[in-house]
Write a protein that binds this DNA or RNA. Structure first.
Length: 113
DNA sequence: CGATTGACGTTAA
DNA sequence: TTTAACGCCAATC
C-alpha cells in the first residue's frame, strides 16, 4: 500500500472496476462513475475510457449518460447492439431509446455503503 | 512537446 | 425557454 495513486493509470482501472461490478439488468452513468473515481469534474474522460473498454471485460453497454441515453451505442459497432444487450439483460427503455434510470440505475455508493 | 478531441455535465447568456 | 460555451482530465494526433 502506501503506493502513490497517480490516478492516471488507476483511472481506467477504476472505471473498469466499477463498470465491471454493475449487475445485469442495471446501468450506471458517467457522472456517477467519475464521481466514484474522484474525477467527477470530468465525466468526459469516463466515457473516453469506456470507448476503449469495448473489447475487454467491461460491459460498457451498461454505462449511459445522465439522461439514460445510449450515447456511445455507435462505439459497439451496430447501433442497435447496445440497446439490444441491455434489453436482453432485462433493462427496459423509454420510447427514446433511453434507459429507465428509475428502474435500473445502479447506485455505486449505495452498493458500497 | 503542443494542440485537439472526447460515450459529459453544469452554468451562463 | 433554448442554445452556447466552459470546465475538467487524459489520450491521441
Amino acid at each position: 500500500m502506501a503506493r502513490k495513486e497517480t490516478a492516471k493509470e488507476n483511472f481506467y482501472q477504476k472505471v473498469y472496476a466499477l463498470v465491471r461490478q454493475i449487475p445485469e439488468g442495471k446501468v450506471s452513468t458517467y457522472g456517477a462513475i467519475a464521481e466514484k473515481i474522484g474525477t467527477k469534474l470530468s465525466a468526459r474522460m469516463v466515457g473516453y475510457a469506456l470507448s476503449q473498454c469495448v473489447g475487454t471485460d467491461v460491459p460498457a453497454h451498461r454505462v449511459v449518460n445522465r439522461f439514460g441515453a445510449l450515447t456511445g451505442k455507435h462505439h459497439f459497432g451496430p447501433p442497435d447492439l447496445m440497446k439490444r444487450l441491455l434489453q436482453d439483460e432485462g433493462v427496459t427503455f423509454n420510447a427514446d431509446e433511453t434507459v429507465k434510470m428509475d428502474l435500473h440505475f445502479y447506485d455505486f455508493k449505495r452498493q458500497r455503503r
